[in-house]
Amino acid sequence: MDLMHILYGVSFILFGPLIGGIIVGLDRKLTARMQGRVGPPVLQPFYDIGKLFQKERIAVIYSENFWVIAYLIFIVATGMIFFAGGDLLLVIFALTLAHVFLIIGAFSSSSPYAHVGAQRELIQLMAIEPMVILTAVGMYQVTGSFFVIDILAYGGLLIFVLPGVFVGFLYVLTFKLRKSPFDLATSHHAHQELVKGLTTEFAGPTLGIYELAHLYETVMLLGFVYLFFGANPLTGIIAVILVYIIEIFVDNATTRITWQPALISAWIVTIVLGGLNLIGLYLL
């Protein structure tokens, strides 16, 4: 890692939420248009987070706040490692760590709704993790390195050699972005939520921190998508935009499903698409 990349990493602290906020804002706008509504202003996510920080601090238990802060810190750290060109496996494992903090935060209040949300978030983690690991493994098989720098430096478009892995990754990306049909733990839409799932007991600034972390995470996950098209920045950015539009479309066109089909289908996709793609790489 040279200084340049470390700078990229550090700049993520600032640009992460900026870009993430605009993406989420556009998302809400586009969602509204798909439903025939006008929708909120593009800057709405910033207003929301700003407001949350202006609210009174309430908590069921003080340590709740601590776990959520830990979640934010580790999400930011993960993103920094990613954008500084670090090791993908480290990124994946640190991301898991961050989510474990979030889940423990939800558990700590022992509120029934947060509890159910936490269990579901765990199921989601279990559904996602294998495919994300396979994604990293696939990139390693092609480029010979787990480091983001080296993966980007690889000449060709990874999508051509890793189509199965890419589709599999898109599948679990829906979980990660908390989009329907896989928004089991907590959703942005009140209409399909059991109170507010995982985040039920987070209020005011604590919720603000959670939302902020979600912005960081969104940007980093889209960074993963970019890696598949990284050979050319233009194709990369177009691909990321297209992928996100597809996610929004799926979000609006489906309803939430129960955890059983979510988990099982994610694993089947992982084994079939991911596994076959990786084995195929050897045969080629």
């Binding site: 765990l122 279990m126 294998p130 493994v137 992982t270």
Partner: peptide, 13 residues
């Protein structure tokens, strides 16, 4: 690799 990937997700749970 598949076993490891699936298994580590389960472990977290």
């Amino acid at each position: 690799v598949l076993f490891l990937a699936l298994g580590s997700g389960v472990t977290v749970f």
